[in-house]
Computed example of a mutant assay.
Amino acid sequence: MALNRYYSSTKYDSRSKIISLGIKCIFISHQQKDKDAAKKIADYLINAGIDVYFDAYDGDLKINHQANNPKAVTDSIKKGINNSSHMLVLVSPNTLYSTWVPFEVGYGYDKTALYVLCLKGIKKGGLPEYIRAAKIIRDIWDINSFISNVTNKKEELLFESKKMFSHREVNNPLHCVMDSLINENY
């Protein structure tokens, strides 16, 4: 069963340990105003059988943030990244105003497999420069392909077992936060 890796009793200091153990965990980087969308993405990944690190569930991070302790907040973020094999950077117009997303990308750039997920309505030219070199997930079709690759399971099997949903399905939980399928002319 997949989980938010923060809850795991085992914490690692480096990605090499994660990789050697075959652990797949996705660090979800997002601007706080996009927390609801980030939670939907985190839940979708967990349902598909992938561990995530999602800051909303990190009690230490919340306490350190409330105590206005930037060093401890930074250490919590670094620990989350160090326990992740992948980083998924959620991009929306809010991301341009984030103070933490650029730090997370910079810290995780050489430590994780970096991907950018475009939230609803982000056009091709709308990505900040510092993440344009990453692999881009533009729509629900793309995230399903990403999940299939990370889990090494065929999409059809994931659809049949309700681990993920087609971009065409009305009950897909990501319809409200991601585009279904980007038009070729987009």
Rank of each mutant, 00 (worst) to 15 (best):
A2F: 09
L3C: 10
Y7S: 15
S9A: 13
S9E: 12
Y12E: 08
Y12G: 08
D13H: 10
S14P: 03
R15Q: 08
I18M: 13
S20R: 14
L21M: 11
G22D: 04
I23Y: 11
I23N: 12
C25A: 15
C25I: 09
I26P: 13
F27L: 09
S29K: 08
Q31E: 06
K33E: 08
A37M: 03
K39V: 02
K40P: 04
I41V: 15
D43R: 09
Y44M: 08
N47F: 01
G49C: 08
G49T: 04
D51P: 14
Y53H: 14
Y53T: 13
D58M: 12
D58Q: 11
L61R: 15
K62L: 13
I63S: 15
N64L: 01
N64Q: 11
Q66R: 14
A67N: 15
A67Q: 14
N68C: 11
P70I: 04
P70A: 01
V73T: 10
V73I: 13
S76Q: 09
K78W: 00
K79M: 08
N82Y: 01
N83P: 14
H86W: 00
L88D: 06
L90I: 02
S92V: 03
P93A: 06
N94R: 04
N94T: 02
S98K: 03
W100D: 00
E104K: 10
E104M: 06
V105G: 05
G106S: 03
Y107M: 02
K111C: 01
T112Q: 08
T112C: 15
A113Y: 09
L114D: 05
Y115I: 05
Y115Q: 09
V116M: 10
C118W: 05
L119G: 07
K120H: 03
K120T: 01
K123D: 03
G125D: 11
L127P: 14
L127N: 09
L127F: 05
A133C: 08
W141Y: 13
W141D: 15
W141L: 14
N144R: 12
F146R: 12
V150W: 03
V150I: 15
E155C: 12
E155D: 02
E156V: 12
F159C: 10
F159Q: 05
F159M: 07
E160T: 07
S161T: 10
H167P: 11
R168T: 13
L174N: 09
H175Y: 01
C176P: 04
V177W: 02
M178R: 09
E184T: 14
E184L: 14
N185Y: 11
